[in-house]
Design a protein around this nucleic acid. Sequence first.
DNA 1: CAAACCTTGACAAGCTTATGGTAATGTTTG
DNA 2: CAAACATTACCATAAGCTTGTCAAGGTTTG
Lengths: 108, 108
Amino acid sequence: MELTVGDAAARTGWSARMLRYLEEQGLVLPRRTRAGYRLYGLGELNQLRALRRLRARHGVELSDLAFAARLRRDADLRAAVDAWLAAADDHGSWIEWEQRKHERLLAA
Amino acid sequence: MELTVGDAAARTGWSARMLRYLEEQGLVLPRRTRAGYRLYGLGELNQLRALRRLRARHGVELSDLAFAARLRRDADLRAAVDAWLAAADDHGSWIEWEQRKHERLLAA
DNA sequence: CAAACCTTGACAAGCTTATGGTAATGTTTG
DNA sequence: CAAACATTACCATAAGCTTGTCAAGGTTTG
């Protein structure tokens, strides 16, 4: 039950082109047959469907997810980012800023 | 010891334009004088300098940081992203993929 | 009051992301 | 073997991000 790129595309709502792109971005990595054909198993199919939901429901961009992945592997980076955010939290009250952002959106 | 936007820019290596942009993105939020002038204190100045280091040393984009901030506040989103990444980790061996990416870069 | 700041809002250039297409070529299968 | 797939490598485009600049107007201060 391993699908080739076209079939995997058909069953997940992505295009074959995008499946190749997602691999290039390191987000969904199918194994390959000896001849080089991509093979998508159950795990990958679920990843692909979940990815669409993430985008649709939470407005997460592919680059965002790629960055989150990077954060998870690179402890050094994670520490730096966390430190920055902690300092920012400490400081600015983005709560009211968020309020204003909301108002800006309503005005549009 | 609170600086107006031009001075803060001069001392942090950003342009005044970018300081306004960073505020718009919710990354560095100065307080305001009654007349609406931005005021940057020590905390903000440090944030600004740290932000430049993050970009220079780790190649972090502003949008990446904005997303990380979003992750930190929105527990729902964080759970969704974490779940996705965990499944992905479980699965694909991005280690060798990372290897290939590296090779691609060397070839350029 | 005039110079030198600041404000917001808009337009624009250059770069990146996300996506589609095409071409040349290799693989699988009826 | 021929049809229907797949591969990589490009080129193209639309949308978004980053940054600069300009205009019309408000504020501060010598």
